[in-house]
C-alpha cells in the first residue's frame, strides 16, 4: 500500500500527462471540444426532465433541480466506470513494451472523470443559483462527498480494469450492469416511492447513499446522514484496498495477454 503512494509520487508526471491526454483526447477533432462534457449531461437533463414529469407523471417539486443534483454525479460515475473498464486493455501496446506502475492507468481515468465532473458541476451550481434554489453552507460538504465517490470509483475500476484483461466479456457486462444500476439508484424517483420490502436492495448500492448525500446538501439543503456516509467511507476504503490487491495480483501477467 505504501508502494502505491510512492509510485504515484514518483510517476506524478505520467499521471498528469495521462489525465490531460484523457480529457483532451476524448474530444479530439470535435468542433466543440471539451464543451461536450458540459453539453452531454445538460441535454440528458433536458430530455429526462421532460419525460419523467410530463410523460411518466412523476410529481416532485422543482423536478429539474431534483434530477440535476443526482444525474450529473451519476453521469460522472457511469462514464468513469465504463472507461475505467478499458483502462488497461486500450494500453496493451505500451504495457507490452515499457515498465511503469500499471495502477497509474485506472487511477488516471478516474481522476480525469472527476476533473470532468468538476467542470460540469460548475454548470450544476449555476443552475442551482439561477434556478431559484440557491446555495446554502451545506454545499461546502460537496468536496467530501466527491472524495468518497472518487475512492469508491477507484476501487471498482481497479477490479474491473484488471479482470477485463482476462475476461473481455466484462466490457459488455459492465454496460448492462450500469444501465440496471441507473434504475436501482434513486435518481429519477424518490426513495419513498420504493416499496419498503425492496428498499434494502437499494440500500446495498453504494451509489444510493452518494446520490442521496448530494441531494441532501444541494436540493433539500440539510445535513446528510453521517452514519450512512461513515459506513460508506469504510466500505469505500475497504473496496479501494481490496481492489488494489486484486489489481496487483492480476497485473503480473498483463503483458502476456496482449
Amino acid at each position: 500500500m505504501v508502494q502505491l503512494f510512492k509510485n504515484l509520487y514518483d510517476y506524478r508526471e505520467l499521471l498528469k500527462t495521462n489525465v490531460k491526454k484523457e480529457i483532451r483526447g476524448k474530444y479530439k477533432g470535435a468542433w466543440l471540444g471539451v464543451f461536450w462534457s458540459l453539453l452531454n449531461p445538460i441535454l440528458l437533463l433536458v430530455v429526462y426532465s421532460i419525460i419523467f414529469p410530463y410523460i411518466l407523471r412523476i410529481q416532485i417539486p422543482n423536478y429539474t433541480m431534483y434530477l440535476c443534483v443526482a444525474l450529473l454525479p451519476w453521469t460522472c460515475f457511469t462514464s468513469t466506470i465504463q472507461q475505467g473498464t478499458y483502462a488497461v486493455v486500450v494500453n496493451g501496446n505500451i504495457i507490452k513494451k515499457v515498465y511503469f506502475p500499471r495502477e497509474i492507468l485506472p487511477i488516471s481515468v478516474v481522476t480525469s472523470g472527476v476533473v470532468n465532473f468538476l467542470i460540469t458541476s460548475l454548470v450544476m451550481f449555476g443552475f442551482l443559483i439561477f434556478g431559484g434554489l440557491g446555495l446554502t453552507p451545506y454545499a461546502l460538504l460537496f468536496p467530501i462527498i466527491l472524495l468518497l465517490q472518487f475512492i469508491i470509483m477507484i476501487g471498482i475500476t481497479f477490479i474491473l480494469s484488471a479482470v477485463t484483461v482476462y475476461v473481455r466479456d466484462l466490457e459488455h457486462l459492465v454496460g448492462l450492469g450500469l444501465m440496471v444500476l441507473f434504475y436501482g439508484t434513486p435518481i429519477v424517483y424518490t426513495m419513498d416511492s420504493i416499496p419498503a420490502k425492496l428498499a434494502w436492495i437499494l440500500n446495498l448500492n453504494p451509489m444510493t447513499h452518494i446520490i442521496t448525500a448530494y441531494r441532501d446538501i444541494l436540493y433539500y439543503q440539510q445535513m446528510p446522514n453521517w452514519i450512512n456516509l461513515g459506513i460508506l467511507a469504510l466500505v469505500g476504503v475497504a473496496l479501494f484496498i481490496v481492489g488494489y490487491y486484486i489489481f496487483k495480483r492480476l497485473e503480473r501477467n498483463f503483458a502476456e495477454e496482449f
Binding site: E13, L14, K16, T17, I94, V98, F100
Partner: peptide, 15 residues
Amino acid sequence: IYFNASIFGLTKGDI
C-alpha cells in the same frame, strides 16, 4: 518527449 520521459518516471522539472 514529455510523455515518453514521464513513463520512465521523470517529473516535468527533470524533463
